[in-house]
């Protein structure tokens, strides 16, 4: 019986919380110095750590816990040009009642749609506790004028979005104009009102782990409530390694500022096995404070059905099949 240590009591090196990074964002050059002063990331070591945590064996009671937790963390997503109100209403129904055969199944965290579908989703989800998340800021490329992006956000918030998933300007980031990225996030945040802001880095386009760490800090400094890996629209989306890296960032940020930020891997997470690996990353990196759908989400669609089938297997002892879960 492995005896896990009691939760560590972080004795932050410099005054727990409260560190101010106001100076870091005072100018383009200051921000650049700050971000480039963050510790580097060794690719091989990071990926090896993620792979090693991926070998954790989660069985029986722990698996049941993890599956329910994962279901409750899903931002059930449809982001297609072909989306219709009917499709969104069906998805909302599934979010509220994922497994019609088992009412003990938890609800998902949110339904994630384009802004023009936010009102439909809000109506369908009213009173359910399931949040409405809307992508905005000219998702997924983000190639539009700031005013257009802000209008996109205002539109979604007005339509009832509880959460806004924005994309950063990767072009500006990659060309070193960090302050522009920062200012844009601040401007979007201002339009969000009470809606929580998820900042998408599109890690596949940032390409290096050093960039992902810098983007994480940039996003957190600018007021992100969540940092999110990807749009799901490019080749490489969420991976254990880039999510591990972002979990390290939110862990370190809370230690230094006292402010807790959420993490959302999105895209490519399709199986229960994958989802449980991510939860192990959360558990052993950021810690159990993040094991809650207020602080960790999965951006996914097909993942839910796999979790439901695994859940049925655990409760009945039989392997389930696709005919016993609902198509979206």
């Amino acid at each position: 019986m492995p005896t896990t240590a009691p939760s560590p009591e972080p004795s932050a090196p410099s005054g727990q919380g409260g560190t101010s990074f106001a100076d870091a964002t005072a100018s383009d050059s200051a921000l650049r110095r700050f971000l480039h002063g963050l510790p580097g990331v060794d690719t091989v070591g990071l990926e090896a750590r993620a792979a090693s945590l991926g070998t954790r064996s989660i069985k029986t009671t722990a698996k049941a816990y993890a599956i329910d937790l994962a279901i409750s963390m899903i931002d059930l997503t449809t982001l297609e040009g072909a989306d219709t109100p009917g499709k969104v209403r069906a998805l909302a129904a599934k979010a509220v009642n994922p497994d019609p055969t088992d009412r003990t199944t938890p609800r998902t965290a949110a339904v994630c749609v384009y802004p023009d579908m936010a009102a439909t989703a809000a109506a369908a989800l009213a009173g359910s506790g399931v949040k409405v998340a809307s992508v905005a800021t000219a998702f997924p490329a983000g190639r539009a004028a700031l005013e257009v992006k802000l209008a996109d956000v205002r539109d979604a918030v007005a339509a009832g979005a509880d959460e806004i998933d924005m994309v950063i300007d990767r072009g500006a980031f990659l060309s070193g104009r960090y302050l522009k990225v920062h200012e844009e996030i601040v401007a979007v945040k201002a339009e969000c009102g009470s809606a929580r802001l998820k900042v998408i880095f599109e890690t596949g386009e940032l390409s290096t782990y050093d960039n992902i760490r810098r983007a994480s800090w940039l996003g957190m400094l600018a007021g992100a409530d969540f940092i999110k890996t990807s749009t799901g629209k490019v080749g490489t989306n969420a991976t254990p390694a880039n999510t591990l890296l972002m979990l390290e960032a939110v862990r370190d940020f809370r230690e230094q500022t006292g402010v807790q930020i959420g993490v959302k891997p999105a895209g490519g997470i399709r199986t229960s096995k994958d989802a449980i690996k991510f939860l192990v990353l959360v558990n052993e990196t950021a810690g159990e404070d993040w094991l809650d759908n207020h602080w960790f989400r999965f951006g996914a669609s097909s993942l839910l059905n796999d979790l439901l089938m695994q859940r049925q297997k655990l409760s009945t002892g039989r392997y389930s099949g696709p005919d016993y879960v609902t198509v979206d």
């Binding site: 070591g45 890690t203 390409s207 290096t208 254990p240 994958d274």
Partner: peptide, 13 residues
């Protein structure tokens, strides 16, 4: 010495 990929895209699970 670690070599690794050029970027973060080499990783998968």
């Amino acid at each position: 010495h670690p070599t690794g990929a050029l970027g973060a895209s080499g990783s998968s699970y």
